[in-house]
């Protein structure tokens, strides 16, 4: 379900005129607020990517598997976060044009859990894995 919806939205990413045909233009302030939310998610994604680099660079004593695993987990989270950012922005923009309720999302909860798990893993790895 979600995947089909996502693929349908991907076409909208590249087709501005398709969005513009639907409904009415919302107040420009709402669009700008949506844009800032999108940028905030993009910053979150960039922070996750930076975290991936940092794990690789600043934990050199870790075993290779743990280091690369943690770094790749953070990088993958960054990729997901930025793709989700565009998708959510498109969905919000469309909902505003149609006058519908804004879409709800489980993504913030999922991302928080992933970040929490990665943080716990890093604590464990740093405490246990130094001599690795």
């Amino acid at each position: 379900m979600h995947v089909i919806e996502f693929v349908r939205n991907v076409r909208l990413w590249f087709a501005p005129q398709q969005i513009r045909q639907e409904g009415g233009t919302p107040d420009y302030r709402f669009s700008l607020a949506n844009e800032r939310t999108f940028l905030a998610w993009l910053r979150t994604a960039l922070a996750l990517i930076g975290g991936g680099f940092a794990v690789d660079q600043f934990l050199p004593d870790l075993r290779w598997g743990w280091r690369v695993g943690l770094a790749l987990a953070l990088l993958a989270a960054g990729v997901l976060c930025s793709l989700r950012a565009v998708n959510h922005w498109v969905r919000c923009e469309r909902a505003m044009r149609r006058g519908e309720d804004l879409p709800v999302s489980r993504f913030p909860a999922v991302l928080s859990l992933v970040v929490a798990v990665v943080a716990v893993a890093m604590v464990v790895v740093v405490l246990v894995g130094w001599e690795g």
Binding site: W13, L32, N34, E35, V86, W89, V90
Partner: peptide, 13 residues
């Protein structure tokens, strides 16, 4: 100002 275009948003992402 006009809203951000999807192409612009997609490019940044």
């Amino acid at each position: 100002p006009a809203a951000l275009t999807p192409r612009h948003a997609t490019a940044t992402a």
